[in-house]
Simulated scan of single mutants.
Amino acid sequence: MNPLVQVKDLAMRFDVSAPWLNRVLERKPKQFVHAVDGISFDIPKGKTLALVGESGCGKSTVARLLVGLYKPSGGSVAFDGRDTREWFGAKDSLSLRRRLQMIFQDPYASLNPRWKVADIVAEPLTEQGVLKDPAAIRARVAELLTMVGLNPLDGAKYPHQFSGGQRQRISIARALATAPEFLVCDEPTSALDVSVQAQVLNIMKDLQAKQGLTYLFISHNLAVVRHMADQIGVMYLGRLVELADKAALFANPRHPYTRMLLDAIPDIHLTGRDRVAVQGEVPNPLNPPSGCSFHPRCPHANERCKQERPALQDFKGIRVACHAVAEARI
């Protein structure tokens, strides 16, 4: 069975140069940030791939590339076997936009404070021409609000009358309005309290089971990822450094960066295992290190790591970009 989403060598660079006159006077070249630097992955239908990593590693840029908010600098994204760059520009682009939606990180910023909840949830239905009859739209909005654990009468209220968790449920209801197959979730619970996070995540899991949804789940919280994901990709400075099934990654992390991320999670079982906190800081993306970009923070780095960038290779079903793993040094 072909994956629903196929990403190949996806790249995104941003021009962060100074204004033209400043560059001429100071004789400086253009500057670019490689926010996403050639990543590839597949997401099977009905499954969840999670992307994790520290802030600034390019996770949210990947999310925006997949839903067409950015045009990639290189590589391709295929949805149901069709290239999305071509599809977004085609006459039938609405059919693609109905089939993929995004849930944003901040439920306080992503909902229009001047609109009633019923209008917010109904907007995709009217904008994309899914429903035209006002009675049918009202019935669909009531169904969507019920689906995410809210009361249909809540449609008459404004966003400020709800808590953060309830607002995120409204965001989920809006995203589900067009009955999409694929949801891109950009840290959908990071702005919420821990107890509320669990409620929202459980709603998302239930919806996935009932409707066969496919998720790309962006997070920096590995506990959340463990609850949601089938497969996990670990990103560092715009590149994938490890890609594995959830069970394999948590049981036997291979890349030194993945090990550091897992060691940073509080150990409630106090297993006595040696733990190494995440050390150092993410390098300046304007001037990334040579070779493997993780080498300044890596306890296993050698001369090859400083000079040669590792490729993502398959090691017993886990894909890892690390010279130390390839040479069996760790």
Rank of each mutant, 00 (worst) to 15 (best):
T189K: 00
S171D: 00
V184Y: 10
Q197V: 11
S190N: 14
V184D: 03
P188K: 10
R169C: 08
E187I: 02
A175T: 10
V184S: 00
R174F: 06
L192Q: 06
T189I: 15
R174K: 09
S190L: 15
I170W: 02
Q197C: 11
T178H: 00
R167E: 13
S190R: 04
R167A: 08
R169W: 14
V194W: 04
V184L: 02
L192T: 03
R174S: 00
A191G: 06
Q166R: 00
A175P: 11
Q197N: 01
P180V: 03
P188F: 00
V194E: 05
V196N: 07
L176P: 08
I170C: 09
Q166F: 14
L183I: 14
I170Y: 01
R167S: 08
T178L: 15
G164T: 13
F182P: 14
L176K: 06
I172E: 09
V196G: 10
R169E: 04
A198C: 09
I170S: 11
P180G: 11
T189Q: 09
L176C: 10
A191N: 03
L183S: 12
A173R: 12
R169G: 11
Q199T: 12
Q197P: 10
G165T: 04
I172V: 14
V184N: 08
A175C: 08
G164C: 12
S190T: 13
E187L: 06
P188R: 01
A198T: 10
S195P: 12
D186N: 06
R174H: 02
P180M: 01
L192A: 07
E187T: 11
L176A: 01
I172R: 07
A191C: 10
V194P: 06
A173W: 11
S190F: 05
Q166T: 10
V194M: 02
